[in-house]
Every structure is written in structure tokens, then in C-alpha cells.
Write a protein that binds this DNA or RNA. Sequence first.
DNA 1: TCACACATGTAACACGTTACATGATTTG
DNA 2: CAAATCATGTAACGTGTTACATGTGTGA
Lengths: 198, 198
Amino acid sequence: MALRHAVLAALLEGDASGYQLAKRFDVGVANFWSATPQQLYRELDRLADDGLVGVVVVEQQRRPNKRVFSLTDAGRDALRAFTTEAPRPVAMRDDLLVQVQAVDAGDADAVMTALAARRERAQAKLARYDRLRDQMLDGRSEADYVRTADRIGPYLTVTGGAMYEQQNLRWVTRAMEIMAEWTAPDRRSGSEARTLRW
Amino acid sequence: MALRHAVLAALLEGDASGYQLAKRFDVGVANFWSATPQQLYRELDRLADDGLVGVVVVEQQRRPNKRVFSLTDAGRDALRAFTTEAPRPVAMRDDLLVQVQAVDAGDADAVMTALAARRERAQAKLARYDRLRDQMLDGRSEADYVRTADRIGPYLTVTGGAMYEQQNLRWVTRAMEIMAEWTAPDRRSGSEARTLRW
DNA sequence: TCACACATGTAACACGTTACATGATTTG
DNA sequence: CAAATCATGTAACGTGTTACATGTGTGA
């Protein structure tokens, strides 16, 4: 049940509607958890049922009404309790890794293209995280920030996100080099270069 | 449907029983995908139904019989086709990141403990991946390996795994330093050090 | 003798994805 | 005038987790 707590944690940043949360949890943006809008609407209803979040319907003249959610004391307690539980180990689940693993029996060119696409994504996310981090620092040095800011959680996760994407870039780059070397035409005789031995 | 293809990719390494695959896909060992035994049994049945894997029941005298699965030509085709599809972007889903994000409203000591545990895990996995990689290289340099080995997929994913764990170590270490600094007793007045301002 | 490895599975549930549906307003 | 944004949701399905059940053989 980590989605619950991810939602609660997101509400620490301020009250929000399902729609706003959906943006924070978008795969392309999320730096500590990602989820689809439907997951959020479902979970928010449950959280409200369980009294961990409060709901206020905000009537808007020119927009559909929105339900603005906020942490209740019970929600805050649940979140605190969550931080004391052993986090479950992360499971590797990346399609691209499966494609790379299977490249020997697959289409090397297609995998190369996928690696290049991943590289672009990583670069974009890295840039986004760096910007976010700079906004948080607001001119201060890290040491200074740590001494003066009122939250470190978001700073640590955004730093983690940036480091993760940097690592992604390094790996993708290296993998592409090795694959290029592997599929190089001088590597093995004639037509065997790209289509392998089965 | 990436589990399917992960299973097919695993069978490239050789025929295996559900039990053997379960070990390869174990969270603590897996370097390109992880899955529980139940997922595998379920998926293997489906793959067999769909003719992507073949089954041979091996009778054993002192052991329960086992069903040994192998790739069929159709399975190989499906795997190849999979390598040409756009991989879906990875979704961030790590309990520890949620805990870190929420540390400002949570138990900082407990999160520290969790970070330390993650550091140990990362170190262990890194050591495992390094060993695996050394076994593959078998004394050869990387350049040499790429020229002579008959598969690169597993080498690339194990390299990725190792790099990923190294990055994990770097982040955890840094996060712990920053958190230690943050929770340091001289930081803010008295009892406010660990329990925050709400 | 106790725990672990081998080997298989069922049932139930929780979580995540995809497709679809609705309808107003703002921006280009 | 079309597309994007705001704002909500349902239905159906696919994937992943947890708990349980069964039984033999090996090693400390």
C-alpha cells in the first residue's frame, strides 16, 4: 500500500485536487512515485472514506467544480507510521532491459533506436530535475539550504532523481557504444553481422 | 505484457523449470526483470497454451517431477518482435523514496535506518553483479569479450545493474549525510531538532 | 531433528493500465 | 475554429503480491 502514502506525502506540499495530483504523479514528471489519474481518483476516495484526507468541494464559476483534498491529523499519523515501516525492496521492471537482454535474438537496430530514445528522455528528465533543484536552492549553496530550508525530503528525492537520470545516461551511452562495436560490419563474416547464429 | 517477454528472454539462457526461473527472477538476484514464482507459473502455463514455449515433463526418481520449458520457434519470433516495439517508460516506484520525501513529517531515525539497510542491499547486489560480470569476461578485457563472446545482452544488463547499484550507493550515502546534518542537534533550538514544526 | 532446497501449485486480493465518456474554457 | 487545459469519472482487464498447501531429500 505505498500508493496511499505517496499520495499523503504529495499532500504535504499543499492541498490539491485529483487533477493537480495527477500532474505531480505523471510518469514524465514524478520524482518519487508515479501513478495514473485513475489510480489517484480511486485512492483519494478510499483515503477520504478512511478519514486520512479531508475533502472540500470548491465551486467554480467558469470551471467544473473541484474536490480539494488535504491531510487530516489521522493522515499525518498514517504517513509518519509509514516512515517507520521497512520499505519493500524495489523490483527491476524495465522493458528496455528485457529488450537489451534479448538483443542477441532480436533486432539490434530497433534496440539501438530504443536506447537513443531513452537517452533523450533521461536528458529531458535530468534537465527538469536540475531546474527544480535550482529553484529549491534559490541561490543558496547546498550546505546553506540544509541549514535554512524547512523541508529536506523533496530536496533529497529530486537529487536522487537527478543522480538516477545521470546514471541512466551513462549506461545508455555505454550500452550503445558496445552494441555499435558488436554489430560493426568488420566484426564477423558477412551477413552474420546483425542476424545471429540461430 | 513484458513479463511474457522477460520469461522468453530468460529461456535464451537455456531451458528451465518454473522453479529455476523463479530463482533467476528473484528480487535479490534479478538483473533485468523480477517476478514472483506464482507469476511465473501462471505465465508459463499461458505461454505453453499459446505455443511460445514447449514443455517436457522430466521424471525424477528422488525428486518431484519437473516441467522443463524451452523456447519454440514461435516464442523466438515473439521475442524478436518484442525487441522492435517501443518500450514503455519506467515508472518510479520505490517505497524508500516516499519515506524520504515524507521525512519532514515522519520519523527521521527510522528513515536513516532504512537508508542504511538499502546501502547494504546495494552493496550486496553490486558485489553479485561484479562477480557475474567477471565470470562472463573470464579474464578477457571488455573489448576482447565484445569481439569473441556469442552474446552481449546479458553482459549489457549486468553492467547496467552494477552501474545502477553504484549510483544507488552514491545517493544513499549522500542522502544520509544531508539528513545527518539536518537532524544534527546544533541545527535548531532544542527539541525542535527531530520533530518538525507541525 | 530441524531447516533448507527441490518442485509444484491454488485462491484471493491489491495494484496498475487502457479505453472510453463528459463538458466547459482558454489559447493559438 | 481547433487544440489544449481544467476537472471528473466508469468499466474492464492485466499484472503483481500474499498466504497457504503439499511432499521428498539433503546437510548441519
